[in-house]
Design a protein around this nucleic acid. Structure first.
Length: 267
DNA sequence: AACGTGTCCAACCGCTATATA
DNA sequence: GTATATAGCGGTTGGACACGT
């Protein structure tokens, strides 16, 4: 049968963490490293479930976390990444070193949403409010702020935003957060959305698929059956947030964020 | 000072994908 | 092959705090 339960839920603490609990968790991870969250609480002498320990460590105790306010550059980067990725907070967080998905999610909900609304932008569609309400036309394009993200900032991202116009499939943000997590059934919005964003595929990306990586396992009958894993281009590798990996050596490659190749484009 | 309202954010909840017995 | 646990994600909640009246 399956595994044994991860923890005795009846004997676990909930709510805010105490300093002592924090110190126990930090001490244990410093000594043993991040590992099996399932066994960590017991080993560290914590009356918490592993899930709670992981969350506390990831969102608050990790030494590489950056504290403090977001800059305007950060704001613009988050806005553009959100336009690109939707509510994929972990992927967005991956582009902002030291920031957590939870932090960015909170920041989005408390600051950026309002900021976009003040600009007359729908924070979910990134379209002008009138367009988002169904009056959009094919010429309607989202208006990004007059002060675009500085090139110096964007240059730090492992992909480039360019002025060329290439639209591509992307996961849609959930509709105002009312959809269940992982929802992917959003209806297309702003079908002619020109995000004014592009992935510079010519770039040498630090996380580009290794040259030894096999091509798409199942030999596609046409190039359109192939695709580019956006996770790679966003700096996410297997073992991190990206699960775009071959489930088994013989299994199919599953791309969660698939950009179909353009005509004449090859990996 | 007391109260009401709004904001922030840490933590929890529920879900999915994957791993394991 | 099936059932179940784990890891991780996004959505939501509720307490603490700030501010205005």
């Amino acid at each position: 049968m399956g595994r044994s339960p991860c923890c005795e839920k009846a004997h676990t603490n909930k709510g805010a963490w105490t300093k002592e609990e924090d110190q126990r968790l930090i001490g244990y991870i410093k000594a043993h490293g991040e590992g099996c969250w399932r066994s960590l609480p017991k080993a560290a002498g914590l009356l918490r479930c592993g899930k709670s320990c992981r969350l506390r460590w990831m969102n608050y105790l990790r030494p590489d976390l950056k504290r403090g306010n977001f800059t305007d550059d950060d704001d613009e980067l988050i806005i553009k990444l959100h336009a690109l990725l939707g509510n994929k907070w972990s992927l967005i967080a991956g582009q902002l070193p030291g920031r957590t998905d939870n932090e960015i999610k909170n920041y989005w909900n408390t600051h950026i949403k309002r900021k976009l609304l003040n600009r007359g932008m729908d924070p979910h569609t990134h379209c002008p409010i009138s367009a988002a309400s169904g009056l959009t036309t094919s010429t309607t394009a989202p208006v990004f702020p007059s002060s675009p993200a500085p090139a110096s900032r964007l240059a730090n991202a492992p992909f480039a935003f360019q002025s060329s116009t290439v639209s591509f499939a992307r996961p849609s943000p959930s509709d105002d957060g009312h959809s269940s997590s992982g929802g992917s059934s959003d209806a297309p919005r702003c079908p002619d959305l020109n995000l004014d964003l592009d992935l510079d595929l010519s770039m040498s990306l630090p996380c580009s698929p290794p040259k030894t990586a096999p091509p798409a396992k199942s030999t596609p009958t046409s190039h359109q059956q192939q695709g580019i894993c956006l996770c790679y281009h966003l700096g996410v590798r297997n073992g991190e947030a990206c699960t775009c990996k071959t489930a088994s050596p013989a299994g199919p490659r599953v791309f969660r964020f698939l950009r179909p190749l353009e005509e004449g484009q090859y990996i």
